[in-house]
C-alpha cells in the first residue's frame, strides 16, 4: 500500500513560531482525546472504582457491618491464591510469546500471498476465532485430543502418557484464540512494510534473512510487542475455557474469581474476588511498566 505523498512548497502556516504552534497543538490534541477519555472514565472508571472500594471493604457477617481494611488484599496474595496468580502469569506469558511469534509468521504468510480472497477470508476468520472461547472451544479440543478424542483414539496417544488436561495442554488451547488475534493485529503493521525497502535491500546485496533482521523486524518491533501485550491480557483474563476443560488441575486466578462471584457454593467471598481482580490489574500494570519503555526504545529510531 504505497502512498505517494505530494511534495508541496511550505505554506504560510510554517512561518508561525514553533513554540506557540507546539503548545496550541498539544492542547488541541488533548481536546481531541477528551471524548475518549471521558467515555472511558465513565464506562470503565466508575465500575473500576466500585471494584476498588469492594476490594478494600471487609465485611463482618456476625455483626452485619462492613469497614475498610486490607484483609482481602493480604488474603488474596497468600496460599492457594498466590499459586493461582503465579500460574496465570506463567500461562499468559507463554501464550503471549509463542502466540506472538507464530501469529506473526502466519500473518506474514497471509500478507505475502497474492490472492485477495485468501487474505480476506483468513483475516475475517481470525477476527472470529480470536473471540472463540469458553465451553465450545473446550469441547472442540476435548473432542479432538481428550481422553476419548478423535486423534487420541486414532493415533493411540493415550498410551504415550499424553494428556490434554495439563498446563501445556491448556496452553495449546489458549493459542487457538491468541494466534488469530496476533494475525489481526500484525497484518496492518506488515502491510506497512514498503516493498521498496525490500527491493532496496536486495539491490544492495542483502539476503532475505538479512532484510528481515536489519529492516523488517526492527520496524515491526513496536507492533510486535504491543500485540504480545494484548495476547498476555487476553489469556490472563480468560476463564470459561479452563473451567470447562481442566477445572482446578491448572490453578488460575480467574477461576477463583468466578467461583466467588458467580458460583453455587461460596457465599460472602465477593470482596475477596474483587481483591483478586485488583491483583490482576496490578500485574497488568507491572507488565505495562516493562512494556512502555521497551516500546519507546524500539520506536525511537522510527520517529
Amino acid at each position: 500500500m504505497a502512498i505517494a505523498t505530494p511534495t508541496i512548497a511550505p505554506g504560510p502556516d510554517k512561518t508561525a513560531g514553533p513554540a506557540r504552534k507546539k503548545t496550541g497543538q498539544a492542547s488541541r490534541s488533548w481536546l481531541a482525546a477528551l471524548p475518549l477519555l471521558l467515555f472511558l472514565a465513565l464506562a470503565f472508571g466508575i465500575p473500576a472504582i466500585a471494584v476498588l472500594i469492594g476490594a478494600f471493604t471487609v465485611e463482618d457477617p456476625v455483626n452485619n457491618t462492613s469497614r475498610l481494611g486490607l484483609e482481602n488484599m493480604t488474603d488474596s496474595l497468600q496460599g492457594a491464591y498466590r499459586t493461582a496468580l503465579w500460574a496465570s502469569v506463567k500461562l499468559s506469558a507463554f501464550v503471549a510469546v509463542v502466540g506472538g511469534v507464530l501469529g506473526t509468521f502466519l500473518a506474514q504468510a497471509v500478507v505475502a500471498s497474492k490472492g485477495t480472497f485468501l487474505r480476506e477470508a483468513v483475516l475475517t476468520a481470525s477476527g472470529v476465532l480470536a473471540n472463540f472461547g469458553g465451553v465450545p472451544l473446550a469441547f472442540a479440543w476435548i473432542a479432538t485430543l481428550g481422553n476419548a478424542g478423535l486423534l487420541t483414539t486414532m493415533f493411540g496417544l493415550g498410551d504415550t502418557g499424553f494428556s490434554l488436561y495439563t498446563f501445556w495442554g491448556l496452553a495449546i488451547v489458549y493459542l487457538y484464540f491468541s494466534i488469530p488475534l496476533m494475525v489481526v493485529v500484525m497484518t496492518p503493521a506488515l502491510d506497512g512494510l514498503r516493498p521498496q525497502w525490500r527491493e532496496a535491500a536486495l539491490n544492495n546485496g542483502a539476503s532475505g534473512w538479512q532484510y528481515w533482521r536489519h529492516v523488517g523486524v526492527p520496524v515491526l518491533t513496536p507492533a510486535l510487542i504491543g500485540g504480545m501485550v494484548l495476547l498476555f491480557g487476553g489469556s490472563f483474563a480468560a476463564y470459561a475455557t479452563a473451567a470447562a476443560m481442566v477445572g482446578a488441575t491448572v490453578p488460575l486466578v480467574t477461576l477463583q474469581i468466578a467461583d466467588a462471584l458467580s458460583g453455587n457454593v461460596l457465599v460472602g467471598h465477593e470482596n475477596l474476588a474483587l481483591a483478586l481482580s485488583l491483583d490482576m490489574v496490578i500485574v497488568a500494570g507491572i507488565v505495562m511498566a516493562i512494556y512502555l519503555p521497551l516500546r519507546n526504545r524500539s520506536s525511537r529510531w522510527l520517529q
Binding site: V135, Y165, M245
Partner: peptide
C-alpha cells in the same frame, strides 16, 4: 483419584458424556 489417573478434570456435561469423554 487424580494421582492414580482415574480423575478426569473435564466438567461433565451431556455433551462430554455422549462423546465418551
Amino acid at each position: 483419584l487424580k494421582a492414580s489417573g482415574n480423575f478426569n478434570p473435564v466438567e461433565s456435561t451431556p455433551a462430554t458424556v455422549e462423546k465418551g469423554e
